[in-house]
Amino acid sequence: MKKETITISSSQGKKKIQKDQILFCKQYLVGTLIELTDGNHYLMKEKLDELSQFLQTDAFFFVSNRELVNLEHLEAVFSDQVLLNNQKTFRINPIRKMALLRRIGQEVSL
């Protein structure tokens, strides 16, 4: 099966990356940082909302307004944090956590 790719334009020029290689995207005041499974990072000029339109897949989830994680690399969900398989953690509020658990098919309890 052909892997879905997007072409990003970063400070290091244009680069084609596979969507499933993206671990997470985080928005800052100037651009959005992407971390890939191979350990590389890219800083894009686009905002996270713009980038998420290109990603258009159920595999990605907003754990906060400025952080988008790839659920294919989700390791665990804790009381107020999610852990990715690169050991990176993200804070998550209770409402988003319930939505996340629904998304990944887990039973939701208050």
Binding site: Q12, K26, L33, G39, N40, H41, Y42, L43, T89
Partner: peptide, 13 residues
């Protein structure tokens, strides 16, 4: 672990 600054080395290919 709960850092306010993220630090990355970029083009390390």
């Amino acid at each position: 672990t709960d850092r306010s600054i993220d630090l990355y080395l970029m083009n390390n290919e």
